[in-house]
């Protein structure tokens, strides 16, 4: 499975340019899409799921154009949108069954089996007869991913799925998604939470203001930030001036004041201890001080 994005552009009717000549290649496996709010992640997601038409460029899914072959592409899709509200009058199992039919599962027995398996997999089997709107936030997200995965789609697109979840739910969700990466499907995971991507994605892309800032492996992204992350001890009165001068990614109180971790821009001189960067720091390094 391969998705090829070529010079993709999207300009909304109000003149806002959401995507600007974006080029990207996505292979099977987990692919993370990082970027701040307004970077164009959701726009890209909606173009990929054929809900939006691009203004320019093209997207090919296994050679099929999203503009021309929507029906065929949709038959391969599983989608979990950012805002996921429920049909409040269906139970968990009913909603999943509905999704299964629409995904093309015809036989009732097969659907029943698939629904039960999926509910077990996402840990909602006990809640199968509960009304969907009576589930907790995390359970709803799990139901969301379940409906995206039922019917064995070849492309799964999840848009900011962990927003609002507590750490436990986020971990559970990441583990669930991680399991998916074992299969030969394209899973595009869009988020602005770096930690979600670091543990699951083979490749990541960074979007900023509609443009591609980085595309590659998380390790490569980290390597780029090497030599640019410092730990510095500052006195209590110096913290503010340090914050104004540098991109501070961590602030740890110490006996003499503060130990701060700084991501320095290229060419910036920082007197401090070099630190091995993590993905979040690498993200800040690449995106700049405000992540932009």
């Amino acid at each position: 499975m391969h998705i090829s994005i070529e010079s993709l552009e999207k300009i909304y009717p109000n003149g806002k340019r959401a995507l600007s000549k974006l080029n990207l290649e996505i292979e099977s496996g987990m692919f993370g899409l990082l970027g701040p709010n307004g970077a164009g992640k959701t726009t890209l997601m909606r173009i990929l799921v054929t809900l939006l038409e691009p203004t320019g460029g093209r997207v090919l899914v296994n050679g099929m154009d999203v503009k021309k072959d929507r029906r065929a592409i949709r038959s391969m899709l599983g989608y979990l949108p950012q805002e996921f509200k429920f049909f409040s009058r269906l139970t968990t199992a009913e909603f999943l069954d509905y999704s299964a039919v629409l995904a093309g599962m015809r036989k009732r027995a097969d659907r029943r089996r698939a629904v039960e398996e999926m509910l077990s997999q996402v840990g909602l089997f006990e809640a199968r007869d509960r009304m969907a709107n009576h589930l907790s936030g995390g359970m709803k997200r799990r139901l969301g991913i379940a409906q995206a995965l039922i019917g064995n789609p070849q492309i799964v697109i999840v848009d900011e799925p962990t927003t609002g979840l507590d750490p436990e739910e986020r971990i559970r969700f990441r583990n669930l998604i991680g399991t998916m990466s074992q299969r030969d499907i394209v899973t595009i995971f869009s988020t602005h939470i770096v930690g979600d991507v670091s543990s699951t994605c083979k490749n990541v892309a960074l979007l900023a203001k509609g443009e591609l800032a980085y595309c590659g492996t998380p390790d490569e992204l980290i390597r780029r930030a090497q030599g640019h992350v410092f730990r510095v001890s500052v006195g209590p009165d110096e913290l503010e001036s340090v914050k104004q001068r540098y991109a501070v990614v961590a602030t740890i109180p110490s006996e003499s004041g503060w130990d701060v971790e700084i991501v320095a821009r290229e060419g910036e001189d920082v007197r401090g201890e070099l630190v091995q960067p993590n993905l979040e720091q690498a993200y800040v390094y690449l995106m700049g001080r405000d992540g932009a």
């Binding site: 065929a72 949709r74 038959s75 989608y79 629409l102 995904a103």
Partner: peptide, 14 residues
């Protein structure tokens, strides 16, 4: 108005 429908909207149904 409800995005829920997106999950149905993107299905392969005319």
């Amino acid at each position: 108005s409800l995005d829920t429908t997106d999950v149905v909207y993107v299905r392969s149904i005319s």
